[in-house]
Design a protein around this nucleic acid. Structure first.
Lengths: 137, 137
DNA sequence: TTATGTTATAACTGTTATAGTTACAACAAG
DNA sequence: CTTGTTGTAACTATAACAGTTATAACATAA
């Protein structure tokens, strides 16, 4: 069973740490996430690319470029490219167009799957980073 | 980017075909889906296991064990084990419990991800096989 | 200027699920 | 007993992932 990459959960972890302490280094984050620093840097690079964080090369540390109340789980999910638009479900390719079902299944099914994916993503959009960190204790 | 397996879309294709014509053989289905017959038989085995279809060994063909109005996309999705309960998102393991974030992230995030997955699955539950086949033309 | 501690990135590895394939056994009916 | 099915094991190639090593680039303090 394939699952959505841990890049997403790690990215949320990273942003939570930066939110709580803007001075944490990649190595410290790696220690908290419990993985290799390169894995953290790769994800930080993606967060930087979409303008969620500013990273300080050389000196170390990073800061959020948006208030945590305005960063949603959907923003993070999109940032780390775990799932592209309308591609949560993979649909088999080239069904036989000579068959009634083969010629219709793709478009009919895709529209339903698109709705299902949208429902999931809209739920992610309802949760902000600050809501998460406020529940830490 | 990992996606949900085509087993799901193939299973919907298979059930649609059986619904339209209960006498189709696995080889015919394979021709419509455009894949190897063994792939079809494997999925048929899963559909049979959960009681969605009855397959006729030797003679060939299959039939639905529930009316197509009562088979939802969620039923099919569950049948083919593409995603287990509460496991759409993989979460990184063993974060550092000595860190405030590391010790809280897992439970706080999991509850949100669970909600997101549920939203997606509830949307799948709203669509029936008969709704799909009625849109074929 | 140099040493130190960072970030950035390329390249490689082992793991895993997938989708397809070949081969063959089991089965039902003419 | 022949034919056309279904059932299943075993193997393959592919692709994404997560981790690793190595090295370059960078910023600051001594």
């Amino acid at each position: 069973m394939k699952q959505i990459s841990t890049r997403f959960s790690m990215a949320v972890h990273i942003l939570s740490l930066i939110s709580v302490n803007p001075n944490v280094t990649g190595d410290f984050i790696a220690g908290s996430v419990n993985t290799n620093p390169v894995v953290i840097r790769r994800i930080m690079g993606m967060l930087k690319k979409v303008g969620l964080v500013d990273v300080r090369p050389g000196v170390g540390g990073a800061s959020l470029l948006k208030p945590p109340e305005e960063i949603t789980l959907l923003d993070v999910y999109r940032a780390v490219n775990v799932i592209e638009q309308n591609q949560l479900f993979r649909v088999h390719e080239d069904p036989n167009v000579k068959c009634l079902v083969g010629r219709n299944i793709e478009s009919v099914l895709q529209s339903e799957l698109k709705e299902a994916q949208a429902a999931m993503e809209q739920r992610l959009a309802q949760t902000t980073l600050s809501q998460l960190t406020s529940r830490f204790n």
